[in-house]
Design a protein around this nucleic acid. Sequence first.
DNA 1: TGGCTAATATAGTCACCCAG
DNA 2: CTGGGTGACTATATTAGCCA
Length: 408
Amino acid sequence: MIPKTKNKRQVAPRKISYSNEIHGFPESDNFSTEELKSNPFAHEDLIESRSLAHEGRKGLVPSKNPWHESPQYRLLSPEEPNTGIWIPRWLGHGIGNANRTRILAWLLWWFDEESTRSRFADRGVERFPGYGRELCRARAKNANHDRCLGTTYTRLAQEVNLSKTTVKGQLQALAERGLIQISRNDSRQHDGDLLITMCGPQLADLYYQFSKDKIAKDEFEENGPHAQRLSRWENDVKDLCKARIKPGWFESNTRRRALNRDSQANFPTSKGTWVPDYLFLICDKKSAPAWVLSQVLWWFSDRVTRDAISLGPRACIKRHRHLWIAKSSRQLNQEIGLPESTVRTSLNYLIGERQLLTFDKWIYDRKRDRSQPMTHLRPNVPVLEQLLSNSDIHDELLDMEMTRLYPY
DNA sequence: TGGCTAATATAGTCACCCAG
DNA sequence: CTGGGTGACTATATTAGCCA
């Protein structure tokens, strides 16, 4: 019988570097002066991050160089008139690929109500007379009377700021999965236009798989609400000139639920990540890092009550005079839906290559994590501020906005 | 817009840590 | 053995950039 050998740590424990910190000295009598000189945060390091976070939840945590007090903070807020794309969590979990999700999220915006502005990529500017009154931004229809978006690959590529090849490839991938339908219109009205239709049943299924929302499952069933709407349309209004667009994804209750347009009580809202275009441009137009960075920065945004009273940032772990969040790549994967390995690569890019985030490792919860240190993250505020005030970024953002505002 | 190719990003897997 | 972590590797998928 082979005796059990106890696992031994082969890798040397990580050493925490304090070289970049401006040292302050905590109030504690338990450490000698020599100890405190070598590690000024010795006392703090004894306390686990979970306890520090618990302390922070009781009230505002003072922090050095806090992101939520930075002048550039408002540039990334969905409440401010800035452009960006809101990516629902169910979309991320249903579709792994970051670019594909970005494009589909953008298409969902086109099939949303014109009057919805906050949290979505809209300046709130009138694109043309009458804008904001329709119930759907996509106004074209194809030969089957389906509501669809008339566009071109080039135009779409400019709107999401990805290459034309990417947009084309991802649209085809989405079409193969049956989430959208692509067709060409030969009529005079949309000559040579690309027509994109949303496939209601498949999208509802995607939403149902993550949310387990029963309404989404029932809606597109046989004799379900959608089928009833369809038969009513065929019998009654098909021949009237006014309503010749067939009911589909846009008219469904599922869409309202999935995009938070349903103000029903006692139902959890659909969560997601607001990806500002600023961050997308800062991250070299890479979707995955921009997405991850947005999610991390969300944790450093202010919690606000209904009366618009700030409760301070969501992050509440205070270590080394900074605010931190304890997030592993697996947790981020659950939050945004990107595969774990992609999240890890993105974090390496953000931390190592671009220094947009700073990280360190401490023990968060000794019991849960088996005494192993967990990654703590915080935004690198000086770098972010410098990039966000870069005039090149502003110019490119303006280009994107102008493309989006230009009417079809 | 379509098609091509080289370059890059990603998904998936494995190995490892550690203490209850 | 388990479960929540880490890092590294590689085959394959995706993308940029060019030209017609």
